[in-house]
Design a protein around this nucleic acid. Structure first.
Lengths: 346, 346
DNA sequence: CATGTGCATGGAATCGATTACATGAGGGAT
DNA sequence: ATCCCTCATGTAATCGATTCCATGCACATG
């Protein structure tokens, strides 16, 4: 029993049938006699046989596997995304191989290449940059592909993402109401869509209050904590530092918090802080951080469905879901303290 | 150029040689003429040929892939572990497929089975329970295996983990010095080694101060935030609630924080809190949380090295690394405020 | 009774690589 | 000039499945 690794031949021999019949039983083909079926099942059981997925994939040209290349596993937003992707994929009979790019285009290429070499059935990517030659080639060749969260303009691939424009307008309205006029942003890499879009939306929202977004108030970050630290240090060294810092992701907000704290300053008394991407920890930081929450689970689900649609020959839909503002205390006392939006996680 | 998918035959035809020669060039076999080599390389280039990893694996009986089954992707500890595992594996020429068990034995089995079916070269597991039949069978059959963080007693598989005993003693000493006498713990599942060991170490440490750990002060959690909430609610309903709650992981600490906050109580004035597993956010919570930090990166690295040693025929070593206490403010004013251990994240 | 239909089954090709073995060319030693 | 060794190369087997096609049997139909 349960030998190290039996093949379909061993099962066939044990059951006294041909490999073809074993294969038919395993794939529930109708034309198999009850007798043969039970003998095969018994042999499978007693040998502890499991079909070799490698051989099966070679023959059938499908791996029933999706690749997911995310920008940063250490970012809770992406791990939640990865989790919902795996969940939905499993429900549809696929497994997922995750590649972590650590916001590095070279690593991203490494994983894309690796996944392509493994002949995954489809690829889900949240691109770290504007599109390497490899990525562009991959989009053009046969492999079904869907962008999630971020995308590459001009590439004909469905996109599943959330739109933060309205939420950013709400945020700016909230900040303006609290009396803030000098607002700064820690931007993500300009090569990413989320990096540039959030800045644009922020600038537009400011414009509707007759406010400017001077270059000195646009810090160039890379979605990692360190860059948040560095940018905020720069802001605080200005002759006229901003009253509010809006971090374009949660890790840069963490870095910003570090830098502010290192100078002995207080949030929001000395400087206010808001972040894109809400995470459970923001409820318990000092102070709780006002943030823009994405419908992360829904994004993951929708992305998988779009990709599987492409794989199985249906026409995939691009999807855009709205993000929303969650007001907490990091921008100053809210007009309605203890609203339902301050509620605990989950 | 860059067709949808060329095979080794196409390359052979384009280069005017046999598939054997192409294969030799690709695997840098010495016996290939410079002329043939350049012609093959040119054909590879112009066809955009990439070897099919599935076919290669079938023939060579190795996938150069490691499986990693972790207990919970949403737990920052495990994602850091996963990252370091992937990093080290990549350095050694392997890729990693991650399976997330969400602390559910059935999901864990699903992933183990899936990875085994894909004929991964080795398996890294941090078991969610005491060992399902499948897991025990997997450990006995040929697949090289290493346990990381948690393990299954009585199974002959190398273990790479950290020992929190000394750090827990330090924590109890710290708490005792601050005047706390009624200490409670939110335990992990008794079926996991980390679940039971942390309780044992805590009880032992208390004993050396002549303190008891009554059953009422042992809350049964499952390493997830919700259970932390539930357990702390129970503690606070006791006639004599504890003065300190020690959460056996960071997610249960988050839940504990939620529950304490929901009652309008304050940390550490009303109740002190400490956690196993340190994470960057603990620096910025209100108050900063005293925690026990594991050398997570080193654990990941060591685990991969042990596993690859087994795979490549060397003898793997079990490894145990010490954890250490990081004092912050969640247990009361420390005798040395603003020590170096309070420093900001990385 | 001859023939047609359908079902259960086995043989063998196939997927895309790697590799053992055979072959032939070229060069050095005798 | 003969023999032998080495090197470059090609042919074919192989890995473990799936699946097309042929075969044979049972049964229904004319």
């Amino acid at each position: 029993m349960v030998s190290s690794s039996a093949s379909i031949k061993d099962v066939a021999a044990a059951a006294g049938v041909s490999v073809a019949t074993v294969s038919r039983v395993l794939n529930s083909h109708p034309s198999v006699s009850p007798d043969a079926r039970t003998r095969v099942m018994a042999a499978v059981e007693s040998l502890g046989y499991r079909p070799n997925a490698v051989a099966r994939s070679l023959r059938t040209h499908q791996t029933r596997t999706l690749g997911l290349v995310i920008s940063d596993v250490l970012n809770p937003y992406f791990t939640e995304l990865a989790r919902s992707v795996e969940e939905e994929a499993r429900a549809l009979g696929y497994s997922v191989i995750i590649g972590n790019a650590d916001e590095r285009p070279d690593l991203q290429d490494h994983h894309v290449q690796n996944l392509l070499d493994r002949r995954i059935d489809g690829l889900l990517v949240s691109p770290t940059d504007g599109g390497s030659p490899l990525m562009l080639a991959a989009a053009r060749t046969g492999t079904p592909m869907v962008f999630v969260d971020r995308w590459i303009p001009g590439v004909d691939v469905p996109v599943v993402r959330s739109d933060g424009r309205a939420a950013i307008r709400d945020l700016v309205a909230h900040l303006h109401r609290l009396g803030h006029r000098r607002l700064a942003i820690i931007a993500g890499p300009a090569a990413t869509t989320t990096g540039s879009e959030r800045v644009d939306a922020f600038r537009e929202a400011l414009a509707s209050y007759e406010l400017e977004l001077p270059d000195a108030y646009i810090g160039q970050g890379d979605f990692q904590a360190d860059s948040g630290r560095r940018v905020v240090d720069g802001f605080l060294d200005l002759a006229e530092p901003p009253e509010v810092v809006f971090a374009a992701d949660n890790l840069m907000a963490l870095g910003a918090l570090d830098a502010i704290r290192a100078r002995g300053l207080r949030v929001p008394a000395d400087i206010a802080l808001a972040a894109f991407d809400d995470i459970p920890w923001f409820v318990h930081t000092d102070p709780p951080v006002t943030a823009i929450a994405q419908p992360t689970k829904d994004l993951g689900r929708a992305a998988v469905r779009a990709l599987v649609d492409r794989i199985e020959g249906r026409t995939p839909q691009s999807v855009t879901l709205p993000a929303h503002l969650v007001v907490r205390r990091s921008c100053g006392e809210s007009p309605h303290p203890r609203t339902s939006t301050e509620r605990s996680t989950r």
